[in-house]
Write a protein that binds this DNA or RNA. Structure first.
Length: 431
DNA sequence: AACTCTAGCAACCGCCTGTGT
DNA sequence: GACACAGGCGGTTGCTAGAGT
């Protein structure tokens, strides 16, 4: 409190004609605002100052009312049920806090956002997946049992494979997944690890991991207002695409980036799996995306075959940070002993998308590394690990690849039941 | 007791959309 | 269509309490 700024009171423009207090609200201010709302109702927030004498800008008043003074607000920490619901909602819609808030009566978007950010931070430190392991595991099993092909996953996609008119955006309702029962085990894992102990774990667990670009298939329902920023990014066909054009790309199971780049996901990003998979619906991290500032570890080079890449770009992280350890996929390798999770990598949605673009005909061996890579739906690169003696323990570089062509990927899209096939319609995920 | 570190939370900022003129 | 305004949204920042050293 005490800070004062000039604010026009309308939106984000500032003027010198009015001064507004900033900082924490006092109870006196709260009473003024409550009295105003009682009398005039909520809305027309820029009139608050005029009618109540409050020296707060309209936006601040609205925020205070919505987040703290509204009578229907639920106080206290999130219940298990609410937490599970948040997980479900985030899995299905990403960082759409306001929309999530409509599904959680008494909770505000800010509250949910803070809750999620804190949770993600905690899980990252633990090396735990953002989404319950059981759910991802079962999704992967379902995919394997349904025989998703991977033999086309060479990571090399042509321009034609991304022609926008050739892809349908599959609709996917995460209600197929019942997370509730899985979450309990997951939560108990978390509860068993005091937060204060987190940083005492092997530091390598907390190193940046590999993040991917896998967009949620969430299709917003009709509503008065649904905002999707039109972030532009280089379009495969040349030029730049807006989100409208890119929608199909977000649903495309490719991950494209530049070797040697790092993606360090912000804690509130849409993690579709865990600390190693990153997706931000509003800010897709496609190669060359406008807002992509941090280097990425997603090591695709469309000019090279995967094998070439592996040899030519071996251990990209090693070149950058020799003692940086990435969590590996337990499906492929043994789980690092320091990792408390059976799955240190991948996430449910990445599983879904990893499989979504694959035809269903050949190479259905569930043990196939290619299948497993595809199920993970993202690049995994295990970097060289410096042991205590200072020796680098080079691990295998794993790279997930999407279908080579659109024809291959569209097969499953056009089948119309790709998600049911992946998840197994008759599977009971609550067990 | 002093200090450090972290989680949790409140609030702000900038961008955006919807609406009215 | 252009503009201004009001309000909504997501991302970020900064403060504080509590735990650990």
């Amino acid at each position: 409190m005490g800070k004062v700024r000039h604010d026009s009171g309308s939106g984000d423009d500032f003027a010198v004609d009015k001064t507004f207090h900033k900082g924490p609200w006092t109870s006196a201010e709260d009473q003024l605002l409550i009295a105003y709302v009682d009398k005039h109702g909520d809305g027309n927030w820029n009139a608050v100052q005029k009618h109540s004498g409050l020296s707060r800008c309209g936006k601040s008043c609205r925020l205070r009312w919505v987040n703290h003074l509204r009578p229907d607000l639920k106080k206290g920490s999130f219940t298990d049920k609410e937490e599970q619901r948040v997980i479900e909602l985030h899995a299905s819609m990403g960082n759409k806090w306001a929309r999530m808030a409509t599904e959680l009566p008494g909770r505000t978007d800010n509250e949910i956002k803070n809750f999620w950010n804190t949770r993600v931070k905690r899980l990252q430190r633990l090396g735990l997946p953002i989404y319950p392991d059981e759910v991802r595991e079962q999704a992967m099993n379902a995919a394997a049992q349904n025989g998703h092909n991977t033999d086309s996953l060479d990571g090399h996609h042509s321009q034609e494979s991304l022609e926008p008119d050739c892809l349908e955006i599959p609709e996917f309702d995460f209600k197929y997944l019942q997370l509730n029962n899985h979450s309990s085990l997951y939560q108990s894992m978390l509860a068993s690890v005091p937060s204060a102990n987190l940083m005492r774990q092997k530091p390598s667990l907390f190193q940046p991991n590999v993040y991917n670009v896998i967009e949620s298939p969430y299709t917003p329902p009709n509503r008065k207002r649904f905002r999707e920023p039109e972030t532009t990014f280089p379009y495969p066909g040349g030029g730049y695409a807006t989100n409208d054009q890119s929608a199909e790309l977000w649903n495309y199971p490719y991950v494209e980036s530049t070797p040697g780049q790092f993606n360090v996901a912000p804690p509130d990003s849409h993690f579709l799996g865990n600390a190693t998979t990153y997706s931000s619906p509003s800010e897709p991290l496609f190669h060359g995306a406008e807002k992509l500032e941090l280097p990425s570890f997603q090591c695709f080079d469309t000019q090279e075959e995967p094998g070439d890449w592996e040899t030519q770009h071996s251990n990209p992280m090693q070149a950058i940070e020799s003692d940086n350890t990435l969590v590996q996929s337990p499906l492929i390798h043994q789980t690092p002993p320091e990792c408390p999770s059976s799955f240190c990598d991948g996430l449910l949605e990445s599983v879904v998308y990893g499989s979504s673009g694959e035809k269903q005909t050949t190479n259905t061996d569930p043990d196939s590394p290619l299948l497993q890579h595809s199920l993970l739906g993202h690049v995994e690169i295990t970097t060289a690990t410096a042991d205590t003696a200072g020796h680098n323990n080079a691990e295998t570089d794993l790279v997930h690849f999407g279908p080579t062509s659109l024809d291959e990927s569209r097969t499953s899209f056009e089948s119309g039941d790709w998600i049911r096939q992946l998840l197994g319609e008759d599977r009971d995920y609550t067990k």
